[in-house]
Amino acid sequence: MRRISLLLAALLALSVATPAASATPGRDVALRVMNYNIHTGIGSDGALDLARTATVIRDSGADVVGLEEVDVHWDARSDFRDEARDLAELLHMRVFFAPIYDLPPLTEGAPRRRYGVAVLSRYPILRAENHWITRLSTQDPNPVPAPAPGFAEAVVLVHGIPVHVYTTHLDYRPDPAVREMQVADTLRILSEDPGGARQVLLGDFNAEPDAPELAPLWMHLSDAWTSAEPGLTYPADVPQKRIDYVTVSPGVRALDSVVVDTLASDHRPVVTDLAVHR
């Protein structure tokens, strides 16, 4: 009996001296993310092949993926497919699709035509929102800058830690004026996030890292590109520019980054291993 009492006392002392691993607040959590402008599933060879797109994502091992140029029943270029849903099913992932455009169907009774960005996740999505930022519409023959949707936010639960994942697609035109407004809108939205310590912004920024219009972004977020290599992403066949990004807030640390050599789109995807602080 005395031996049992001594054993219980020793176990009690050990449990007080050594907290359980699940209760250790300082332990980082690993998260692999990808950003990929999928060009509506059309590769550099001009062929539509969404299964090929899914293979690139699957082979990367990414837990969370930001997608740009996603068609949902848009038109014949993507066979009127719901690409967000189809990729989620092919990859057994959850998805949040944030349309930039939401238009009536071409034929009566067909689904609405939508085009935008998306977040894929192996982890639960606690909530999601389609934010509005300034855009210059490609559907209007005489566009003027105006607020429009298509800036996705998905709160992803990673091993008990909520991480705010955003996906964006900034204006492609040579004039940076609209991108300047979009960066300002982005920073405003991120500043309103109560979980701002753990933010990951993924996207096709259509500007290189030293572009003046991106400078305000780097005052609040870090470019997660870690390699000494230039990390060029566009065009996919002979890359000349780095315009596709993984960026993180101070509560997230970049460990390693690579650009995947693939012609499944006109962009190459970026994959980054992150450490999320508890």
Rank of each mutant, 00 (worst) to 15 (best):
R94S: 14
L232H: 01
P147G: 10
L202H: 10
P99R: 02
H131Q: 12
G116S: 11
E192G: 14
P145D: 08
V16K: 02
L11A: 15
H267S: 13
Q199T: 05
D185P: 13
A275T: 01
A254M: 00
E68M: 14
Y123C: 11
S137H: 09
V165Q: 06
A154E: 03
P162F: 05
A275E: 12
T247H: 10
E83A: 15
G46Q: 06
V259C: 09
V165A: 06
L170K: 01
L50M: 10
Y36W: 05
Y245H: 11
A184C: 12
L120C: 09
L103V: 02
E213D: 14
Y36F: 14
M34L: 03
L274Q: 06
Y245Q: 00
L201R: 01
S15W: 14
R188L: 15
A17E: 06
Y36C: 01
T167P: 00
F97R: 10
Y123R: 14
R85L: 15
I125P: 04
V29G: 02
L190G: 00
P216K: 13
Q182T: 10
M93R: 10
A30L: 07
P143C: 05
S191P: 03
A211K: 09
S191M: 08
T167H: 02
D63F: 13
V156R: 12
F97P: 04
D49V: 04
A177R: 14
A228E: 10
D266C: 11
V258L: 10
Q182S: 02
A275C: 08
L263G: 13
A23G: 08
L120D: 07
T107P: 01
S22Y: 08
V95M: 15
V33Q: 01
V119C: 07
A128M: 03
D45A: 04
H164S: 15
Q240T: 11
S137L: 13
R278F: 07
S227L: 04
L157W: 06
V72N: 08
T134A: 11
V29A: 02
T226P: 06
E192C: 07
R268V: 02
R27D: 05
R278Y: 03
H277V: 03
H92V: 06
A264D: 13
V165L: 03
I100D: 02
S44E: 11
P174G: 08
R188Q: 12
A215T: 09
T107A: 13
L7R: 13
L202G: 11
F151E: 04
G150F: 12
I4M: 01
P162K: 07
V64A: 10
I133L: 15
P174R: 10
A20P: 10
L11H: 00
L8G: 00
R135W: 09
R77H: 05
E229G: 10
D49H: 05
L170G: 03
V260S: 03
D79Q: 13
D59G: 03
Y123H: 15
R52F: 09
Q139R: 14
